[in-house]
């Protein structure tokens, strides 16, 4: 990993290979430390709830939440599916929109001057406040949740991708011009692959924002979904269901984030492959 990624290049003049023994130790620590801390927090939580006699309505214990998830996985799964699918759809649309806008900003000076300040200004709006308006504009179906989610998720992709396109080595562009390369050749063989680490860092932020967008949409209006389940259970003071839904939501989020990370490593492998 340390030597294959596109992103690991920056600044490294001479790659210093890490002795395997040392990196192995660091890897084990990198897994054990965070897991250990999480385990301590969970055990502390469990003890606090049991020994402190905290009522389940206020804070259910990790054990009872886990038991609920195992017993009622069918209901949770039923609600997890629309949330995950809508989040994924919003993320894909936000990524496409973000990259398209970044290309326009990169290649058109007029678009850059007209669009970029407005985009940044747009970012200052507390976008969550606009969520109910999307219901008015697009109705109570999934389209309004997806539209709202795209609306809050595309911004980091635009910014990161624009930065990535602009961050190309000027010497490399000059070399391409000296070789009489076309703008399209420069884009596909230099600009785009060079921007990939930036694009993926924008996409990783976008995926978390897309999930937030869908959940907010479900809070406002929905007939299914984890956001709907959380609101529904909380209204009935059924904290256990709420917490179980949040845990499942975390798992869905991890899954989607993992898919983006997987996409990144596939893209890196594709571009760094010896295809000569």
């Amino acid at each position: 990993m340390a030597t294959t990624g596109i992103g690991t290049e920056t600044g490294a003049i001479i790659a210093t290979p890490t002795p395997p023994k040392e990196s192995g130790g660091a890897n084990v620590r990198g897994i054990v430390l965070p897991l250990g801390l999480a385990a301590i927090v969970l055990v502390g939580w469990q003890l606090a709830v049991t020994l402190g006699h905290i009522p389940p309505v206020i804070l259910p214990s990790p054990v009872s939440i886990t038991r609920y998830i195992i017993e009622r996985y069918d209901i949770l799964l039923m609600h997890a599916v629309p949330t995950t699918l809508e989040s994924a759809a919003s993320f894909v649309l936000a990524t496409l929109l973000g990259i398209a806008l970044a290309i326009i900003i990169t290649y058109s000076q007029i678009a850059r001057e007209a669009l970029y300040p407005n985009l940044v200004f747009f970012q200052l709006i507390p976008k969550i406040a606009l969520a109910p308006l999307f219901i008015i504009w697009l109705g109570i179906g999934s389209q309004s949740r997806i539209a709202f989610s795209v609306f809050i998720a595309f911004f980091p992709v635009v910014i990161a991708t624009t930065a990535g396109f602009a961050n190309v080595d000027k010497g490399m562009l000059r070399l391409c011009r000296a070789l009489t390369a076309s703008e399209w050749q420069i884009f596909t063989s230099v600009r785009f692959p060079a921007a990939l680490p930036h694009i993926f860092s924008g996409m990783k932020i976008a995926i978390t924002l897309a999930i937030i967008g869908v959940i907010i949409g479900e809070f406002i209006t929905a007939q299914a979904g984890l956001g709907y389940l959380i609101i529904f259970a909380t209204a009935r003071a059924d904290t256990e269901i709420s917490m179980a839904a949040i845990v499942v939501l975390c798992i869905c989020g991890l899954l989607l984030y993992g898919l983006v990370a997987l996409g990144e490593s596939i893209a890196n492998r594709f571009y760094s492959a010896d295809n000569s």
């Binding site: 596109i6 290049e9 080595d169 010497g171 490399m172 000059r174 070399l175 391409c176 070789l179 009489t180 390369a181 050749q185 063989s189 230099v190 692959p193 060079a194 890196n268 571009y271 760094s272 010896d274 295809n275 000569s276």
Partner: peptide, 23 residues
Amino acid sequence: FQDATLLPWKSALDNVLFPIRIL
């Protein structure tokens, strides 16, 4: 140029062949 300006994600061989692709 003063800097080698190689594509960091490509092997030495692929970098040498870069003009061939462009041309």
